[in-house]
Amino acid sequence: MGILGFGRRRDADFVAYYEARAAAVRRTAYVLCGDWHLAEDLTQTAFTKLYQAWHRLERYEALDGYIRQTLLRAFLDDRRRPWRREYATMPQSSVFDVPVADHHADEREILLAALARIPKRRRAVIVLRYWEDLPVDEVAQLLDCSPGTVRSQASRGLADLRAALGDDLMELVPGGVR
């Protein structure tokens, strides 16, 4: 196949993969960072890296692992964030990012606030293990650490989550954390 043919096929495959997986990738990004704008930035970053590496990824199954890895790297690397924190003021009157009202909003806010208090790398372990439901070995591979580190980080992350949620944990999960 010529270069032109490869380019067209890559674009078509990329579009198909994006349409199949982008929403899920962005949801994971959102659980990691708690911000839809940043989640979209992270998702675009991950898919752009994927696009650039497409010719090296021979197997379709490799795409999920690659997109997860680039997403995690972008999330863990503050320098890749296009947004920079500037300064804070107390809210009084103007709101521009209009929130969407729904009955789970309070629970989500509690949970996201609790996650945000967990260190980023530990949070990544929690999200990969319990949001993405990935096995320990795969999490270890994605984060480039040992399975033992993943287990200890997951344990500490859960303890952090319990401490951060406090009584709210019971509200979210009748019977506590499984």
């Binding site: 949801r27 949970l111 949001w131 954390v177 499984r178």
Partner: peptide
């Protein structure tokens, strides 16, 4: 533990980039 994330699994989402 998965249940903790249930509120997030049902969350409304802004439109995805095409």
């Amino acid at each position: 533990m998965n249940d903790v994330f249930e509120p997030l699994r049902e969350m409304p989402e802004p439109p995805l980039k095409t």
